[in-house]
Simulated scan of single mutants.
Amino acid sequence: MSPLMRSAIVLGLLSAVGPFAIDMFLPALPAIAADLGASVATTQGTITFYFIAFGLTQLIYGPWSDQVGRKLPLYVGLGLFLIASLCATLAPTIDMLILARVGQGLGAASLMVVTRAIIRDEYTGYEATKLMGLIMLVFSVSPMFAPLSGAALITVTGWRGIFAAMAVAALVAMLVTAVWQAETLPKEHRVPVHLKTMGRGIRTLMRDPVFMGLTFVGGFGMAAFFIFIASAAFVYVETFGLTPTQFSLAFTVNAMGFIGASQAAAPLMQKHGALTIILLGVGGFAASMYVLMALALMGLASFPVILAGLIAGFGFMGLVIPTTMVAALDPHGDIAGLASSLGGTLQMVAGGVMVAASGPFFDGTPTPMIGAMTVCSLITLGLLLAILPRARRIMSAG
């Protein structure tokens, strides 16, 4: 097995824990709302606050991993996730469940930001994008099988068994980290955490319009997917009458476009350049969502139409996410941990805010969900066009 493939498997499994915590319990959202006597908007808080906690905490894990190395933050994050999963299993009210979900987000954040930094420790450019695509292939198991396993668990254990399974996943991830993940940041390359140094690094990153632009291009692309995650169970189950298992299958089909495109990102980037692929992905994503929104307004948003439109939209997004991640980090290798954490924080908070902002408009029908996703796609297009001239100069010089 090549070192690149081994890294993809290990980092993919670690990266999958966070998405697993989202995807596995999606079929249970209507059951959770009914069992705990919560409204749809309140139940969506189990996703919104997870994203916000997940995003904000990345700003801590990144600099910390620059100081102490990559493995200790992984262990701490997994420990927090494990404890929070057990609390969610026993949660007596929706408020306690949301609090436990916040704890899960606080822990899972380490896995996302530290794995990105590990990639930047060892690879750049084409190889980094290829590894990012391979990682996405590994954790694509989450949207493909996590909802199905969640639906199966609901029939046997109820929704609480899903969170118990997440605790088991955290234990497995700890073993994977201990046995197969080497430390990739040597002591001589570690940077002490000083607020002044951290502030200087953050200012450098936030004054870089290309870093910020690419970060939010990816961020609002992911925000569209977050809106789908928060709303799809209610739309598919309550509007179209799907069972939890049928919803899980539909969710898997929707994810297939993203999974396939993410694997094509690296070879396409090598052949055509990162910026060309980002332009193709963002333009296709915006066009797909615009067409789907037009069909919804005409009353033509049937289940097959939504399924097909989202496959196309998420497919184009699969080109955008890994490529923007690598392109944003490439010029900032000396502060890769901080850059990764700041980028992740901004992206996840943007996603959480968009979910919260779209919540009041949700009425159980597909149109508000599609409309909010269309807004996200148009924001990504506007941001990319705004930074395009500067991005072309920087990437061509690199």
Results as ranks from 00 to 15, higher is better:
residue 111 L to Y: 02
residue 162 I to G: 00
residue 132 M to D: 00
residue 136 M to K: 04
residue 259 I to S: 05
residue 258 F to L: 13
residue 366 P to W: 01
residue 373 M to C: 11
residue 108 A to Y: 07
residue 250 A to H: 02
residue 181 Q to C: 00
residue 362 F to H: 08
residue 7 S to W: 09
residue 371 G to K: 06
residue 231 S to W: 00
residue 187 K to W: 14
residue 100 A to D: 11
residue 135 I to T: 01
residue 327 A to T: 15
residue 58 Q to Y: 02
residue 350 A to T: 14
residue 291 V to E: 12
residue 194 H to A: 03
residue 144 M to L: 15
residue 179 V to P: 02
residue 32 I to F: 06
residue 119 I to Y: 07
residue 64 W to Q: 10
residue 38 A to K: 00
residue 377 S to F: 07
residue 340 S to D: 10
residue 74 L to C: 02
residue 318 G to F: 14
residue 177 T to E: 03
residue 223 A to P: 04
residue 307 L to N: 12
residue 222 M to I: 12
residue 173 A to G: 05
residue 1 M to L: 11
residue 38 A to C: 03
residue 34 A to H: 11
residue 139 F to M: 14
residue 76 V to G: 01
residue 250 A to E: 03
residue 131 L to V: 12
residue 72 L to T: 05
residue 15 S to A: 14
residue 104 Q to C: 15
residue 302 S to F: 08
residue 12 G to N: 08
residue 314 F to L: 15
residue 292 L to C: 02
residue 50 Y to N: 09
residue 314 F to D: 09
residue 178 A to C: 00
residue 330 D to A: 09
residue 309 G to C: 01
residue 255 A to N: 01
residue 64 W to G: 01
residue 204 T to S: 04
residue 229 I to D: 07
residue 186 P to R: 09
residue 43 T to R: 09
residue 314 F to R: 10
residue 67 Q to P: 01
residue 299 G to C: 07
residue 230 A to N: 03
residue 313 G to H: 08
residue 12 G to I: 11
residue 27 P to K: 01
residue 17 V to M: 00
residue 383 L to K: 11
residue 111 L to A: 13
residue 318 G to W: 10
residue 352 G to Y: 11
residue 197 T to Y: 08
residue 109 A to E: 08
residue 238 E to R: 12
residue 269 M to H: 08
residue 312 A to M: 12
residue 216 F to C: 10
residue 333 G to T: 03
residue 97 L to H: 10
residue 131 L to N: 14
residue 366 P to R: 04
residue 194 H to T: 14
residue 226 F to P: 05
residue 17 V to I: 11
residue 24 M to E: 02
residue 19 P to K: 04
residue 69 G to V: 02
residue 161 G to I: 11
residue 398 G to S: 15
residue 267 P to Q: 07
residue 146 A to F: 07
residue 355 V to C: 05
residue 74 L to N: 06
residue 59 L to E: 07
residue 360 P to D: 02
residue 292 L to E: 11
residue 325 M to E: 13
residue 155 T to M: 11
residue 170 A to Q: 05
residue 226 F to V: 13
residue 245 T to S: 14
residue 87 C to W: 15
residue 294 A to C: 08
residue 61 Y to T: 02
residue 65 S to A: 02
residue 129 T to H: 09
residue 279 L to T: 10
residue 92 P to A: 08
residue 383 L to E: 05
residue 255 A to K: 01
residue 47 I to P: 03
residue 358 S to H: 13
residue 13 L to V: 09
residue 96 M to A: 13
residue 319 L to W: 14
residue 112 M to Q: 13
residue 369 M to G: 01
residue 212 M to Q: 06
residue 311 I to M: 15
residue 134 L to W: 11
residue 274 A to G: 15
residue 394 I to P: 00
residue 86 L to G: 06
residue 295 L to N: 04
residue 130 K to C: 05
residue 85 S to I: 01
residue 102 V to T: 06
residue 350 A to V: 05
residue 222 M to S: 08
residue 371 G to N: 03
residue 5 M to D: 00
residue 149 S to Y: 15
residue 150 G to T: 10
residue 276 T to W: 05
residue 182 A to Q: 13
